[in-house]
Amino acid sequence: MKMTCIPMKTAAAVLLAHHSQSADAVESARRTALLESLSPSGFLWWRALGAELFSPHRVVWLGMGTVWVLIVALHFSTPDAGGFRESAPAGGQDSFALISNAPLLAQLGVKTDAYRFDSR
């Protein structure tokens, strides 16, 4: 019995011929897949946006995202020495109202040491 290699092209032809009866079904599968994937209902704008905008520059986007996350993390991790986050200082209008009334408050016996510099 002669034992030699199997010619690759012939083997491919045998395999393709064996499945040739499925050719129509495969073609139909291809058409269905393309219709579903390329039709307007199947075309998702966010996917296209991702493909056009995000994917080609993903390193840049990820880098920027990381920087922002770090900035936010650092901001909230530093101690609130001035106590600004807990109680905001009085606005300009409020301060002016207090300063204007300092003499009246003094007459009423209310200590206005905080505003002494204004009463001079």
Binding site: A12, L15, L16, H18, H19, S20, S22, A23, A25, V26, E27, A29, R30, T32, A33, L34, E36, S37
Partner: peptide, 28 residues
């Protein structure tokens, strides 16, 4: 490429109907 791809899948999974579904999913 559809027929070689289908034959590849069909010979691997040894199931014609499953191979058709997988080929369609591959195209999509």
């Amino acid at each position: 490429h559809e027929m070689p791809l289908f034959v590849y899948i069909a010979e691997l999974v040894q199931d014609r109907s499953a191979a058709l579904d997988l080929a369609q999913e591959t195209f999509a």
